[in-house]
Design a protein around this nucleic acid. Structure first.
Length: 421
RNA sequence: GGAGGGUUACCGAAGUGGUCAUAACGGGGCGGUCUUGAAAACCGUUUGAGGGCAACCUCACAAGGGUUCGAAUCCCUUACCCUCCGCCA
């Protein structure tokens, strides 16, 4: 949720920063809304103060044996006036909140100008696109040939866009999860195994609700949602809490399946592991002091890159331009892995700093000693999207005879297996 | 799923219609006195949000409604927790 104080105190600066996103958010509406709200609030509070004062007088007067009938009649009128004002106060509050909810986070100064993904800026590249001296196959064909991907059976059980991994395919996925978790634990993250469903307040806390209802699976006989990302449970761990400042940064890593309806993705990436309704993801998450959050973003991105490097997968890091930046993000680095079947780099991780946009909504604050509580900055990143990592390994490690070499770091996690054949 | 009990500050807990919810009382934390130092004892202090230049005002007793001049307290709805029973990996 947008910071109301920033709009009040630095309106022009906010306006300039948001202009970078290339859309009009009708900011001029704010001053009037805010003013009307304060006037109404003031009026209502003055009446309540009078009511409170009278309520203290009544028992004193009664004790003194005086008649309170007149005062009570007067207060009844006042109570009715207060009640009459309530719908107005509520309406303006809702209007202001809806307005604030409709404003995206301000892009950080290091975010490049631009209107869509074509304007994203490549920051660095690691490795070179894999060269083959034979015609490489896409992972869905290799997976089918080797019997490690079985989409047809997944369709039978669930439906289209679900995937079933079998044998060495299932095992490499599990190996990747363990490998990723172990690396992040070594980098100081606490491992979390959260619930895979979340309730409505949690979904609101991280911004999935009310706007993205159609992207999520809702369990029809309860009010639970399947999580679309581990970000939901991880962020909500500290919802409505005030954390001791000495505990920051808080660092969590969690493996979870993620469930998405992919409502707007009809016809895209229909084959293989790239875009499915249920996928595995290892997520890294941080709560940071505001002044450190951009350093923490660099470190978090490095932790995600570390996985790709250890797996020896070619990738590049992209700084998302303002027009491509997510609604709640101030800055995002996408990690894109080389995918031979696409003949280009494909997103495998997204590492973002939300600054205080998310913590304001979820009410996650910290406090040093006697200081006033302040909002933490939240950061998260995929490290990595496991299905896409499996796909990248199948494709980049394929051999001329259709077998797949196991990356060295995964061999211990595969019980010594070095080749899928 | 059934039957009871519960939800008040950092923790425990009192308060069952008014005139101390900046919340009794106990514990913890922090500061101080005393002490070579510590313990003990004693004294003080310790929730957050919103509005206002300020004095100060408003809101919050799980959440949301209602009754009342006035609600932590009475009524309704919902959520969560605990105990017992049932079911169950």
């Amino acid at each position: 949720m947008f910071d109301i104080k920033a709009l009040r105190d630095n309106f022009e600066e906010v306006k300039t920063k948001l202009a970078k996103r290339g859309k009009d958010y009708n900011l001029e509406k704010f001053a009037d809304l805010d003013k009307r709200r304060r006037e109404l609030l003031n009026e209502s509070e003055q009446m309540k103060a009078k009511q409170n004062a009278a309520s203290k007088q009544v028992p004193i007067l009664k004790k003194a044996g005086e008649d309170t009938t007149a005062l009570m009649a007067e207060m009844k009128e006042l109570a009715e006036a207060i009640k009459a004002l309530e719908p107005q106060v509520r309406a303006i509050d809702e209007e202001l909140e809806a307005f604030l909810m409709g404003i995206p986070n301000t892009p950080h100064e290091s975010v490049p100008e631009g209107k869509d993904e074509t304007d994203n800026v490549e920051i660095r590249k690691w490795g070179e696109p894999t060269k083959f001296d034979f015609e490489p196959k896409p992972h869905w064909d290799l997976g089918d040939d080797l019997g490690i991907l079985d989409p047809a059976t997944a369709v039978k059980i669930a439906g289209s866009r679900f995937m079933m991994l079998r044998g060495a395919g299932a095992r490499i996925q599990r190996a990747l999860i363990s490998f990723m978790l172990d690396r992040h634990i070594a980098h100081g993250y606490e491992e979390i195994m959260p619930p895979y469903v979340a309730n409505r307040p949690s979904m609101v806390g991280t911004g999935q609700l009310p706007d993205k209802e159609e992207d999520m699976y809702h369990l029809s006989n309860t009010d639970y949602y399947l999580i679309p990302t581990a970000e939901v449970p991880l962020t909500n761990m500290h919802r409505e809490e005030i954390i001791d400042g000495a505990r920051l940064p808080v660092k969590y890593v969690g493996y979870t399946p993620s469930f998405r309806k992919e409502a707007g993705a009809a016809g895209r990436d229909t084959r293989g592991l790239i875009r499915v309704h249920q996928f595995d993801k290892v997520e890294v998450f941080k709560l940071s002091r505001p002044e450190n959050s951009y350093d923490e973003l660099e470190k978090l991105t490095a932790d995600a890159e570390d996985i790709l490097q250890k797996l020896n997968l070619p990738y590049r890091v992209v700084n998302l331009c303002a027009g491509d930046l997510g609604f709640a993000n101030s800055k995002t680095y996408d990690l894109e892995v080389w995918m031979p079947s696409y003949d280009r780099y494909v997103e495998i991780s997204s590492c973002s700093n939300y600054e205080s946009f998310q913590s304001r909504r979820a009410a996650i604050r910290f406090k040093d000693g006697a200081d006033k509580p302040a909002f933490v900055h939240t950061l998260n990143g995929s490290a990595l999207a496991v299905n896409r990592t499996t796909a990248a390994i199948i494709e980049n490690y394929q051999q001329p005879n259709g077998t797949i070499k196991i990356p060295d770091v995964l061999i211990p996690y595969m019980g010594g297996q070095t080749l899928i054949s």
